[in-house]
Amino acid sequence: MHHPYIDKYAELDSPIHRIDPRVKIICAILIILGIIFTEPTSAVSFICYGIFLSILVILSRIPVSFILARSSVVIPFVIMIAIFIPFVKEGKVAGAYSFGTLKLTVTYNGLVILLNVLVKSYLSVLCMTVFTASLKFSVLLKAFERLKFPNLLIMIFSFMYRYIFVVIDELMHVKQAKDSRTVGGGRLSHTKTLANVLGVLFVRSYERAESVYIAMRSRGFNGTINTLYDFRLRVADIAFVVIVLGFVAIARFSSAI
């Protein structure tokens, strides 16, 4: 079966794809921290980040439609915050509405909060999408390992990545079998069937894990995995870090003007 979930655009070739994975991780964190710590009112900084990230998106050759779809995950949260805006009482009133006996006031303070979280979350998602969509997950994990993240956790991640496709395949097979035998799915009465599907999946996954462990053990696995060191820092990578640092500084400085 086809799995479009992970690594969809990681095979493309672009200046962004060629950057050292470790550099990408550090730069992504730098940019997100820069965005998070920007003053809510400094619009110029946000525009700077917007332009910079848009340039990165274009350079990376990842389809804009994909990036837009990915960034839609922030919408539910933004709506949730938007609902609370009328209840933020402090500050200057921007407008008042009354629905029968219910009187709601919208303050500038509330609108600033909404705009702040909307812009920051959107820019951060944009940043994460550019950097992680241009990176294969296995390479990303290796980069985390080189950056001295806990080895045990990285191994769990790499195992999960390896078996996600196997488990999802199994789930799809069981689901297909279920769908071809039941009509009008989505009814409440099907909940029990779905629960049994999950139960089967759990038992099978657990048994698979046990046989994987035995297979590994019989091949000499002792709890650690050794991989070859194959990352090399190029001049272009260092240049990229300098550019990112320069940009975060410019965005920061521009708010002071």
Binding site: I156, F159, M160, Y163, S205, Y206, A209, E210, V212, Y213
Partner: peptide
């Protein structure tokens, strides 16, 4: 030493679920 394979596969299960 069972931690890695077991946690990995079971996490994949919860992800699929």
């Amino acid at each position: 030493d069972k931690t890695v394979p077991l946690m990995g596969v079971v996490s994949a299960f919860v992800f699929a679920a």
